[in-house]
């Protein structure tokens, strides 16, 4: 059933995202980040180390040795943000299998709009 499939993706994606965020914070605490970093909350430039604006930056942070713990948490944030889109993507073949082509189309439209948001984001960046 499509509903159950979508529910499962939402649940797994949400739990996984939060788990990765917590993992990153744990690593950050282990490195003494909470004690040493002075947080700026006014969005002044240069950007804070906790602010990532592209997937590439997150990946670069993950590749570093030792790994950038904030990049790990940022990956968790990305997982969370991608979860609703993944749930809709899963629904498309499920609707097709149920021969509900109208809603396969609507789910595709919703997914396309989410992808447009990434294009808009890319244009800003």
């Amino acid at each position: 059933m499509t509903e159950r499939l979508v529910a499962r993706v939402l649940l797994v994606g949400g739990v996984l995202g939060i788990a990765v965020i917590v993992l990153g914070l744990g690593l950050y605490a282990g490195q003494g980040g909470f004690r040493h970093h002075v947080l700026r909350v006014d969005r002044a430039l240069p950007r804070e180390p906790g602010v990532f604006v592209s997937i590439r930056q997150v990946v670069n942070g993950m590749r570093r040795h030792p790994v950038d713990p904030l990049a790990v948490s940022a990956l968790g944030l990305v997982l969370l943000m991608a979860t609703p889109g993944l749930a809709v993507a899963i629904a498309i073949p499920a609707f097709v299998a149920a021969r509900d082509f109208r809603y396969a189309g609507i789910a595709s439209l919703v997914l396309a709009m989410l992808l447009v948001s990434l294009l808009l984001a890319g244009a800003i960046h």
């Binding site: 970093h37 604006v53 948001s117 990434l118 984001a121 890319g122």
Partner: peptide
């Protein structure tokens, strides 16, 4: 996604 690319999502917040 749009907030993110504008640098408005701070991991530590």
């Amino acid at each position: 996604g749009i907030y993110w690319s504008r640098g408005e999502i701070h991991t530590l917040i």
